[in-house]
Amino acid sequence: MIYLLIANLKMMYRNKQTAFWALFFPLLLVSVFGLFNMDEYSKSKIVITDLSQTNDSRQLISSIREVKSWTVLQILDSSTNSLLTFEEINADYIITIPIGFSETFPTLLEYTASSNSDHELVAATVRDLAHNIFYPNLPSLTTESNIGTKAIDYFDTVLLGLIGLAITTNSVISVTIQISTYRNQQILKRLLATPLPIWKFFVTQITSHLILVMIQTSIILAVGIFIFGANVTGNILYMYLIIGLSTIIFLNIGFILSAYANSPAAGSGLGNAVIFPMIFLSGTFFPAEYLPGFLPYVSKLMPLRPMLDSLRDIGLYNMSLTDVWVPIVYLLCWILVSGVIANRVFKFN
């Protein structure tokens, strides 16, 4: 069995397609997301029209500039503001400081429909900043305290999503193609004519893929953390455990699909048809809760969702295995069901 395992690993290593899909493709995505500053993209773009031109208005502008989640694009005055439309200045908000700002209220905040969900926060902040200028001596209504939770940005979240994508792609598609190729070329039949027990064949297939997945995960994590500065601080062994459980599920799905794939090309098509909806519906690139209609419920039925949820809870929020016992139980159920189905439908001939 050891020799079969080593032979499997050799074949994976020598197969350029495996190397591409298992390592190069996920690393390419990690690099793209690492270089692309999604947090900068998510900042609110603000244009200020200062019709007041007083010390107070300039103080307000200065305070607005200090808000880290905003980008001040332009500061206009009375001579230019009426000439520009929202579309032309490409802003999410226009804050207009009226003439006589020191005496009259309110400051006008205009916002685009696309940024509707954030406008209350922006309005409250502007109100608070203006309030501080007019009533500098009043005690603050809120106090702030950093309780030590680090900031988690989009890249941290998507990095773990990309691990899920890499594992799913590698396990489902590569197994489906590999097994249908072996069946087409009668390699499986040849093995069936030997005294090799069927379970040993499955165990070596699963073990060799698990080894590949662990190497794959380690490389993706290392590149994400050490090159692009991802904040993944959770227990790495717990993360590998979740990844291992999930890999077994995806391999089982690959074995099931291979039973219905008459050729390697059909295997590739079937694999893609199954994994791509799962990748997009399970929160790989964006939170699954934001999916429309009933899709968040569909998402919960897929094995990638509990994998990503528990992986992020452990990796980003330092949770323990007991904290994520629900998705783990869900993954174990998937292993059982997919294993039984794979065992029933798998065909050597």
């Binding site: 020799y3 032979a7 074949m11 009668q186 390699i187 039949k189 004519a193």
Partner: peptide
Amino acid sequence: IQLQSSAYFDYLTLSEILSLLGSI
């Protein structure tokens, strides 16, 4: 056993295939 039309693992050498089959 020699099947009517059987291929062998593409990414192994002849020597490795025979060793693999022998190990079974």
